[in-house]
Structure formats: C-alpha cells, structure tokens
Design a protein around this nucleic acid. Sequence first.
DNA 1: ACCTAACCGAGACGGTACGTCACGTCTTTCG
DNA 2: CGAAAGACGTGACGTACCGTCTCGGTTAGGT
Lengths: 215, 215, 215, 215
Amino acid sequence: MERAHTGRRRNEAAREAIIDAAIALLQDVGYEGFTIERLAKDAGVGKQTVYRWWPSKAAVIAEAVGTRARHTIPLPDTGTLGSDLTEFFVNTFRQSEDPAVLNQLKNMMAASIENPETAGSFKEFLANRRASLRTLLERGVERHEVAEGTDLDFLTDLAYGLLWYRGLIGHRPLDDDAAYKLAAALVAAGECGESGAVGGPGEPGAPQPRATSKD
Amino acid sequence: MERAHTGRRRNEAAREAIIDAAIALLQDVGYEGFTIERLAKDAGVGKQTVYRWWPSKAAVIAEAVGTRARHTIPLPDTGTLGSDLTEFFVNTFRQSEDPAVLNQLKNMMAASIENPETAGSFKEFLANRRASLRTLLERGVERHEVAEGTDLDFLTDLAYGLLWYRGLIGHRPLDDDAAYKLAAALVAAGECGESGAVGGPGEPGAPQPRATSKD
Amino acid sequence: MERAHTGRRRNEAAREAIIDAAIALLQDVGYEGFTIERLAKDAGVGKQTVYRWWPSKAAVIAEAVGTRARHTIPLPDTGTLGSDLTEFFVNTFRQSEDPAVLNQLKNMMAASIENPETAGSFKEFLANRRASLRTLLERGVERHEVAEGTDLDFLTDLAYGLLWYRGLIGHRPLDDDAAYKLAAALVAAGECGESGAVGGPGEPGAPQPRATSKD
Amino acid sequence: MERAHTGRRRNEAAREAIIDAAIALLQDVGYEGFTIERLAKDAGVGKQTVYRWWPSKAAVIAEAVGTRARHTIPLPDTGTLGSDLTEFFVNTFRQSEDPAVLNQLKNMMAASIENPETAGSFKEFLANRRASLRTLLERGVERHEVAEGTDLDFLTDLAYGLLWYRGLIGHRPLDDDAAYKLAAALVAAGECGESGAVGGPGEPGAPQPRATSKD
DNA sequence: ACCTAACCGAGACGGTACGTCACGTCTTTCG
DNA sequence: CGAAAGACGTGACGTACCGTCTCGGTTAGGT
C-alpha cells in the first residue's frame, strides 16, 4: 500500500509569490521577454520550484491568467437595458484605457496565440466576461427590451469584438463616446431583432466557393 | 560630388527569398518559434544577410506582413448596401476560416503585440482592410441607405472587431450565418443612424471615475 | 553567518574532460585552429561549461599546459657531469623528435606568444625543466667538475636554447650527435669557468649605443 | 598625397602599402589579431586587392617577414674572433631588447608555428642571420682561432638558441653581460674544438630507446 | 522528541539560438 | 581593365535561457 504522505508539504507562499511575479512579469515584458529564470529571481524562488509545479512557462502564465479571471465585476442594474449597457461599457472601457491593464490584456492575448496551453485559461477568462454582458442582455429580453429569439451571443461578440479590436490595435480610443455608441447599437440591434433573422438577402450574391486574394 | 555608390549591389533574390521564407515560417511556427537561424536556412541565405538588412526578427516579420498587406480585395458592387456587405463578409469570413490564413493572421497579431516595430506594418495592413469596408459604407451613405452623420469608423471597427474576436478566440465560427447577421446589424445601425448621435442616454448611470476590479 | 555554498558542485569529470580534450586539440590543430566550440564537442560538454570556468581559450590552454608541466623527469646520476648531461640530453632530444611531442611544444610556445594569459603556465613549465638541468650542473659544482662561480643559469639557457631553436625551426635535427656535442660544450664551458668571468674582452669594440638595421 | 591609379598594370604602390601595413599590424596585434579586413583598411586598399596577390593571410605575412629578411647587418671585423663575436652579440642583443623589435620577432615566430606557409620566409630570414654569424666563425677558423673541423653550425645554433630562448620567454635579459659570456663560451668551445668530436663519453648511459615522461 | 522524506534556494550541467565578426568569394562602378 | 567598395554564404565568437540535475539546509508529518 502507498504511504499517505511524508515530508514537507508544498509551500503555499512560494506558489503565490510565483503567480504574483508571473502576473507582474507578463505585464512588464510581455510573453516573449518572459523567462523562467527571471520569474524565479523575481519571485525569490529556485528555478526548480517553478518546474516542480508547472511543466512550462505557458502553464505558469495560464495559471496566472486564470487567477486574474476569477475576479468578477459587479453588474449594473439601473432598470433599463440602455443604461445598464452604457454604464457597463463606460466602466469597462475606462479600465481598458489604463495602460497597465491594457498591456496585461494584450500580453495575455499574445500568450494565448503563441501557446495553446495558455489559451485554455484565457478562454475561460473571456467566457466569464461574456457571461456578464449576456446577463445584462438576458435581463433586457425579460423586460421585452430585446426581441425574443435575438442571438445574444452574436451581440456579445460584437461588443467585446469592438473592445478588443480597438484595444489591440489602438488606432482609435475606447472613450465614453465609443461606449455610448456601442450601447446604442446593441439596443437598436436588439429592438429590431434582426440578428435573430436567419437569412440575409435571398440572393447573397451567390458567394464564390473560394477567392484568391487572402485576408 | 560624392560617389553615388560602390560595391556589390543588394541581391534582390535574397531579399525575396527571405521575405517569402519569413511569411511561410511565421505561418508554420508562430512568432515564438520563429528563429533567424531557421529563417536563414529556409531562405538559403547567410544569417548575416538577414541582419545586414533587418535589425531584428520583428523587422523582418514586419516587412513580410507589409508585403502581404499590399494585396487588395475586389469590392462587391451589387447596388444595395445589404447585398454588398453580405457578400463582403461572407467572402472575408470564408477566407478567415482557412486554418492557414487564420494562423497567419493570429501570428501577425501576436507579433504586433510582442514588438512595436512589427506593429507599424500590421496596422497599415489593418487600415487597408478597414478602408475597403468603409468604401462600401460610404456608397451606402451616397445612396441614402445610411443616415448622414453616421460614424462609419465605429461601424467598421464593430465589423472587424467581430471578425478578429472570433478568429483569435475561436469560441464560435465565422460562418455564413454570422456574416448575414453582421451585415444586417450594420444596415440596421446605419438606418437608425443612432451611432451618429453624440450623447448616450440622458442618464448614463453616472459612471464612477474609476472602479477597482480590473477589466 | 554566511551560508557556505549552495547549488550543485562543480563537476570534476567535466573539468578533466575539458583539459584532456584541450591538450589533445592543441596538439592536433595548433593554437589558431583551436576553437572553444570544437573543444566543447570533443569533451562532450556544453560550451557554457567551458566559459563558466575559463574566461578565454587562452586560459583553458594555460591550464592544460600547466597540467602537463607537473610531470617530472627522473634525473640521471652516473657519477660524472659528462655522462649525466649526455644521458639527459640524449633522452630529452629523443623525446623532442617525436612529432606529437614537438608539435605540442611548438603550439604551447605559439600560444604563449599570442596570449600573455597562457604565458604564465608555460613559463612555469619551462622553469621546471631548467631546474632539472640546473640540478645536474649543481652536482657538477659540488664534485668540482664545474668551476666555482660559473653562471649556471647561462649554461642552462644555452642548452635549452639549442633545443628550442632547433625544435622550433627544424633546420637541423636534435639527434644523439647534437646531444653529445651539447654535453661536451657545457662541460668545457664549466671547466674553463669563462662564463663566470664578468668582463668580456677589454676592448668589446665599443659597441655603438644603437644601430639602425634591426636584429 | 593620394596614391596614383595606373589602370591595368598592377599598382606597385598598393603592394607596398599592404606589406608596410602588414609589418606594422603584425607588430601591433600579433598573428592572432591580424585580420585581412583590418590590413586592407590600414593599407587603404580593397580586400580583394589583397586576395588578388596573396592567397592567404599567411602569405602576406610571409612576404612581409621576407621583406624584413633582406636587410643585412654590417659584420664587425676587429681582427680577433673574441672582439668580433662580442661586438656582434652586444649589437644583436641590444636590438632585441627593443620591445618593438622583440615583439615583431616573437610574432613572426608564432606565425611560423601556426602556419607552414609563413614558415618558409621566416626560415630564410633566420638562415640569413645564421650565415652572418657563421662568417665570423669562418674567419676565426682561417685565423686558427677556432680548431679545424669544429661544427660551426652547432656553435651558431647555440648562439641563436640563447638569443631566441631568452627573447621568447623573457625570464632573463639579453644584456651586455650575456653577450660577453656568449662570446666567451663560443671562443672556448672553438678553441677546445670539442664540438667537432663525434663521440660523447664511451658509455653515454645507454640511453633507453624511449622514456615515458614526455618532453 | 526524534526520524526522515519531500520541499526549498542555489546553481552547474548539456544544449540551442542569439547577434557580431572575419573569412574568402563575388559583383558593381569609377577612373 | 585594375582597384575601391561592399554584399554574399559560412562558421566561430561569447551570452542568455532552456529544462534537468545535484547540492546542503529546512520543516512537517509519523512513530
């Protein structure tokens, strides 16, 4: 029979120091500059202690990202969809304009692209965010501010798509004006309910099976 | 007068071989696995020849990405905004579903995040894409299908936001249905013209200056 | 109190493998062809392990040469200076005629010229050799075969000078005949004791302070 | 003034500039630090111009060394061997104590060891020197100051051996005292004529065919 | 109150890729 | 058409991290 356990237990303080250092390091130097050696030094920890608990730098980052993901945002509840969305987007956008936060988000995205292992936690994190927004929209459906059968996932992706697209590229700001417009666009789309309609035009131009120019 | 130039001229064949190899390599192994040594070997070129002309791997990738950016897409012209957008998005989405293309786009994005040097070319490339879509919307304005004063840039970002958000995360497909819905949403948003309205609701919930929970 | 030492201890086997490989490599390819990369591969060691302990290729060679220097030669003791010297030189010359040994010695000399770091060990090695010969001569002084006050260092340099001059240039062999003559010359010089005399001829030709033609 | 350019004919000025630069460079940085690129820049010449006329760096150095070799030294002629030798050695030693000259000689030796191509010119140069000394000794034979049948080559090597041994190692100076002693030793060896005697002792200790300790 | 096994920090190990330098070859333009 | 300038493919340089492997020291069970 196996012995239950002997010897020293895992040092929780070390684990936390590593995760904290990982979060800070990812924010500072990005995924590329992130090295285990630097991480260990920053955390005041032996390199082996990192490798004892995580198989790769991607795994540490994944857990670090996952830790951030557990934070939740309080949802606004003003009574109308428009106000709820406006408040939600204004808050979200304002946070995303903080360079530290934005950097962190971008680096998490880069990590997720570079390494599928990391991607898991990141997708969870993102799903979390989407669920928050979806809750607001579902409330709108209940209040009949949004047409029954509207594709809420589509609207959610539309909203977070704008956030990420502007955040990643930085060609235009995520200011309050953008938040207002986004809220308005979602409300309009929900009212018309057009995003529940399956078909576009009867004749969508018979899109060719494949085009040569890539994008 | 100064002597114009002496010595052997830059070998254009080598330049092209490097750029071609860079495009292929970025697609294959991503930004992280991209090594100059491998690039040089693939291009059949000395490592020094790469370093002679580009200061870093980011710079090569930037030029490679920029080369891709010069490709243009033929714009649909069916007579109505709805059909134009539908055809445009269906084509675009179908291309983006090709794993090779998608991989390339994701890796370009990762490169752009990791290294600001790369970002320049990539942003140009993206601006190019946005300009195409904007052309369609401007035609809509001319035909009075879109309300005067509508923020076309916002609509463009909304559309490409959806594309990139789904492409990067992969949680939901970029299928024809999504294209139809996106086209419909843009048409609706343009008709109502709500995205031209500066102010949001009269009561935007008085968004707090700053919240503690991040994003 | 300070912690004495942490971390893995230096691998003595690696150290020896490197020194052995260095000796062999210096003999094979000379100082110029000696590369750290080749040394590491020959020793079955990472390049960094070489650089961790030695700052330069000269330093490794210096230690390798120094290792060789610790070998000692058994001195003959036949009872008379003439026989002692003869045996000593015959043995020494025969060894020096072995191409491998000669090559090693020449390359050590080249290394010592190229790099002062290397020179230290090499000079120790040579001093070692000279001390052996000096012992024989000192015995001769005790036996009154060599005049009191004779400059033994001068005689030693004369002997090793011949060895190295012929060895380095190779224009004439270091054969037994040369050994006999060298022994005889030293004995003669010792008997006459002329090398103890401080002054040269009364009229040393009034050597000019400096001549223009070099050497 | 600018170097003239002659068109199709080999530009002798370039050749000289290269050789001059090579001599200076060898003296400055030694054989190891000697690079063709640096040589070309110092000589104000294209790299190809070096390679057009010399196949390797060794060959340039060889020719540079050979150029130095053509210089001849005026031989003393005082009437007696002792004075001749004393003057010769005092002059020679004084020149060799000049650090620039010594450096040059040492680097030439290193070059000769590293590269057989270089060795040829260097040996010629050395043979030249030996011939000078031999002339003095031959005069001694004519004057019956040196025993008939003495091995003059042996004496020559003895003398230059001392010079090079001390010069290369630097453990003891090449001062006037050394010159006096060397002259005296040669005179003594010549008088006794022992270096013409073939045999050493009848029982040279029966030197073993091979000993284990190297050198 | 020991044992003793697992954890800890430190850091050496065999490797891979980095970005630089010089090699010897080649091509281009000027005089 | 020779010589300068300089780009080319190649390969060693010395450095930074990789992920693995000892080290001596520490600490929390089980006996």
